[in-house]
Design a protein around this nucleic acid. Structure first.
Lengths: 207, 207
DNA sequence: CGAGAATATGAAGAGGATACTCACATTCAT
DNA sequence: ATGAATGTGAGTATCCTCTTCATATTCTCG
């Protein structure tokens, strides 16, 4: 923990001071995540978010200077969540299969509320201005957690970074796909995903 | 009427009869794929496509009755391509690693021109009424090819369908992710993807 | 050649969203 | 009670969008 960046609290026009406004801001972010997940970036409009939050459009602009600041807040919250999940799964040393199980369980949990939010945030929603740095930082820390896990079960020092990339995107691909088909809860799918991770990390001797 | 449309190659307002118009239609579809891949569904407008194709907007509507018919044509062409790649890789019986290598090579080839087209087509672009059936048919045949490959290298009959789903979405996830970062050509990534497939299909003996 | 069919053009219409503001109302803390 | 914090939503201005149509160009074929 070298660079301790205290929460810049996201670009806000005004800081909510009372409990009422804190709840409002929270409702807006939550509704924003929902709209983004369900309608995608193309259907993400400030008016729609305000309506979904049960709040007037004016209230939204009371705290978020513009649309992008809102996306930024949503992104931050979601990424923090995902990061904590991975961080926990790869925390202590533990048997490979246990790591895989915890990772899968956590990732599924992180995606089951807003199933496609993650992909929309990564693929569709534009990131610009000051968010580029934060975004890169998230990606780096995200991969780093995977890398430490990979390093733990794999000897070769060489391809660890590439393996982390491959593993993380494979896991995301499976979860994203399952989310689209409402199959996130299917236990046999979860089991097979665990198998995939374990098989890859333990290596194969196949012909 | 006896206007029997043998194979509605796509819902077209007019059939191109001369070489010139065939080239125009081709240019429109190609430009459409490009725009869709680069700007996503949100940035996919008929005017933009026409401009990218070096053709007037009028020409576009000469052959495609509306926007959706154009997406449909793009989708059809791309899916046909992908299907042929997988079909070829899983055709004859061959050693596991060879299958994996051919699959990876083919999938990367199919994505290297319009890197994110596949995902946009699956996730963002809406499917109109008539395309639902075609879309489902594609998904079924797509999975079936994976399933035959899985069945070939795996004994257990039980989870084959689930395994096919997991494998296909994992491969897509890795490729999609690599495409976003312009890393589709990185040989170590290709190699690791092959490893992932081989490891999963040959099973693990991990603790 | 020349007539009619095929193909190409792009300005313009009609419409719908959209992000965002502002003048004012309500509720809070002290 | 009084000012600060919070909430409202009709309205504005702008930007695009899809699609048409009357016209111009190019081709085919007898």
């Amino acid at each position: 923990m070298s660079t301790r960046i205290a929460k810049p609290a996201a670009r806000m026009r005004k800081q909510p001071r009372q409990a009422r406004s804190i709840a409002t801001v929270e409702a807006i972010i939550e509704a924003g995540a929902q709209v983004l997940s369900e309608l995608g970036w193309a259907g993400f409009s400030t008016n729609k978010v305000a309506e979904a939050a049960g709040v007037s459009i004016g209230s939204l602009y009371q705290y978020f200077p513009d649309k992008l600041a809102l996306v930024e807040a949503i992104r931050r919250r979601h990424f923090d969540h995902v990061l904590s999940v991975i961080s926990q799964a790869s925390a202590e040393e533990k048997p490979l299969r246990q790591f895989a199980r915890e990772l899968v369980r956590g990732m599924i949990g992180a995606h089951s509320i807003h199933p496609t939010l993650h992909q929309v945030l990564l693929d569709e929603a534009p990131g610009d201005r000051g968010s580029r740095a934060a975004h890169a930082s998230f990606q780096a820390r995200y991969l780093e957690h995977y890398a430490t896990a990979v390093a733990q079960y794999r000897r070769r020092r060489k391809d660890i970074e590439t393996m982390a990339r491959v593993l993380s995107s494979a896991v995301e691909g499976v979860i994203h796909n399952a989310a689209r088909r409402n199959m996130l809860d299917a236990p046999e799918l979860q089991k097979q995903l665990v198998e995939l991770i374990a098989a890859y990390l333990s290596g194969s001797r196949a012909t």
